[in-house]
Amino acid sequence: MNATTTRGALLTALAYVLVGGSFTANSVLGHYPYAGGQFLRYGLACLLLVPFVGRGAAGRLRGLGARAWLRLALLAAVGMVGFNLAILAAERTAEPAVPGVLVGCAPVVVAVLVPLLDGRRPQRLVLHGALLVAAGAFAVQGWGRTDGGGLAFSVCALAGEVGFAVLAGPVLRALGPRLLTATVCALAAAEAAATGAVLDGGAWLRRPDATETAALLWQAAAVTVVGFVCWYMGVQRIGTERATLFTGLVPLTAVCTAPLVGTGSYGPAQAVGGVLVGAGVALGSGALPHLGRKPAPTAPRPHRADLRAAPGRTPHPSTDRRST
């Protein structure tokens, strides 16, 4: 990989490691109102980002058309608020591994969907890498009990993850990572407040205790501000298809950090899953560029007479031999 690709891969990996750690933080927010937590998380993240959006931010936002604003609203509703709501709804009747495995299939869907939307064929290495990542996510989490409702909401969570990846492309070019993150966080906070008012009435927001405050601060500052900005910076460098491969790091990080709060363990299945995820990321992201590619054709060795006939051409031992 070149320097740009390497930097993009590292930024994307960091983003998903932070997101994976957020699942452990979620375990201490089980009794906090969902909509209120999302409102505080995204609202605080927006405020933290405002000083860093750069000059001309207001002008860039005013330059967006109605279609771009609709895309941003859908990104916040589907990929952020809706995704988290679907996860919580799925876990009411399904074990957590079920939505986890479905979300782990996002790289496969993105590897097929994004090229089709661009009018091109899926890249074979990216698709093969995505399949390995999905298999690794399944190995890490396993499968669990569920019913029809749990499975349906798990599919909705998959759609939210895909939407978060796919919807950002055009507006990312117009706004850049920091302004885009600040904008969708503001929209997500407003949408979470509206959702809470409809579903929970006056109980949608309360003052968090010390532990809940720490978890919300982690989600706002580390996961949302740093994680989202790193994700979008990674997408700029390696593209949506390759960036989504790193989704497999989310369940792996969640499993590795869960024992720190006494909610999980790490065993052979997680080790195998980690190997599969790593192999899929390496294959699909271009870290193994020689696989599946035909070697470049070797130019025929020029005849000595041709070398003598070419004016100003002097044979040299390092260039006058067939490459091996």
Rank of each mutant, 00 (worst) to 15 (best):
A66R: 14
V155M: 12
Y16W: 07
G104R: 02
Q236C: 09
A68E: 15
T240I: 07
T181A: 11
G169M: 03
A76S: 04
A174K: 11
R321Y: 10
G274Q: 04
G312W: 07
V255S: 07
T146V: 13
T319D: 12
H316Q: 11
R121Q: 11
A168S: 10
R206K: 12
A137M: 09
K294R: 14
A221N: 00
G234M: 09
M233D: 06
T211P: 05
L40K: 09
R301H: 07
A135E: 08
R55E: 08
R120L: 13
V108H: 01
V171W: 00
P170E: 14
A13G: 00
C156N: 01
C185I: 10
L158D: 01
R293N: 11
R207M: 12
C230H: 11
L260K: 05
S285Y: 10
L132V: 02
V275R: 11
A90L: 07
R67F: 12
A45H: 07
G37D: 05
T181R: 05
L75E: 03
A9N: 02
H303L: 14
V225R: 03
T244R: 04
P300G: 15
D209M: 00
Y34H: 15
G201K: 08
A243T: 04
A139H: 04
T224K: 14
R304M: 15
G284V: 02
R308C: 15
R60P: 08
G56H: 14
